[in-house]
Design a protein around this nucleic acid. Sequence first.
DNA 1: TCCTAGCCGTGGTCTGGCTCACATCATGGA
DNA 2: TCCATGATGTGAGCCAGACCACGGCTAGGA
Lengths: 225, 225
Amino acid sequence: MDNDVLRQAPLFSALDDEAATALRASMGETKLRRGEVLFHEGDSGDKLYVVVDGKVKLGRTSSDGRENLLAILGPGQMFGELSLFDPGPRSATVTTVTDASFASLSHDDLLRWLEGRPMVAHGLLSQLASRLRKANDVVADLVFSDVPGRVAKALLDLADRFGRSADDGIHVHHDLTQEELAQLVGASRETVNKALADFASRGWLRLEPRSVVIMDLERLSRRAR
Amino acid sequence: MDNDVLRQAPLFSALDDEAATALRASMGETKLRRGEVLFHEGDSGDKLYVVVDGKVKLGRTSSDGRENLLAILGPGQMFGELSLFDPGPRSATVTTVTDASFASLSHDDLLRWLEGRPMVAHGLLSQLASRLRKANDVVADLVFSDVPGRVAKALLDLADRFGRSADDGIHVHHDLTQEELAQLVGASRETVNKALADFASRGWLRLEPRSVVIMDLERLSRRAR
DNA sequence: TCCTAGCCGTGGTCTGGCTCACATCATGGA
DNA sequence: TCCATGATGTGAGCCAGACCACGGCTAGGA
């Protein structure tokens, strides 16, 4: 059951079965329906979460109300660690994009687990380092790539994590509206829509509601960089 | 002497005097002159560095040769940890902006230090978390703010870390050319120059070579957000 | 069943910021 | 001292992409 998902999570990967089961037992459980908010930017809170099932978006809102998505996370991925190690309010709002369930762990419990388990600490460091590297890549993309390029890159990333190949291409049920996709790549909905329409007209992909089918991975990848 | 600088570094902050001295002894030392490169993006390498004296820029180059600066780091700040915990080639090129010296530590030595010293691991986690938070802020700025806003924000950050107040304002010897400042905020040199000229004409600051004097912190801060 | 609210597709306009093209100003080496 | 080289200021033109304004589509609730 859901233990399988958690075992893939970086937090657990270094643990043996027994330790993993024990850690799992000490974690809380939360379930939400699509569109519900787990916590808001600015909230205080010191829980770390792992997605067990479903998808969430991490977003921030600018002073004038516009929104920007930092990431879309799926099963096995962790979030909320920032307020753990860098004390302060939550830096993003987490909203579900599908029905979803989570396992959670408090700061104190995590610290107890870290003690005497250097491999777990090392796993967390890897995780944070990888996130930081990705964040730097996003910055580079915003500076160097145009909107269609960023859209292509986002689709490839989503395909990589949520895609399933079939005869007619890679089906990617990303569960995002074009509005959300636009917020993810830092562009307007209209521009993203035009980029998608252009890709579709070239036969690189087919558009479906909250989903795309990638038919020419090669060309799309080339457009991405 | 330089031990004072290192004691402020996050890597050391949790250590007592004796441990700090021992760690310092196990670290290598490097000195470079302005404009020299410590390592290139894509190099292999597993050393972590701490700036002892001087400043460096972390930059990446796009496929078509344009450059983007991720950060300017000064005394006490750490870099190169990414390739440690997230194995892979160096993700950025590090170049000195002034004459500079560094203390370095290899992956293996660091891991030995982490073992049995959970506080050090925790310090590193804090450091990475803080960097990640900053990277996310940069992303938000690129999406939400215009170039003058980003320039203002960059100046405030530099002032915060390298500024010295005097009667006529905060003197910020950032040691960056306008070209480098432009790469830091993800804009063209010309646009940055015009933004700076505009700030100066409003009396918010005075321009000097590789340096600015901030005269109206209040207005500049307001322009930044 | 209809109606409403949210998505999605697509044109037209306007502008921030990039590129190009110079002129000027330092600064250090011969 | 004089020149070369890089840094700095500034204007002109152009264009990607934001913003605006629709019309059509679809799904879920009354």
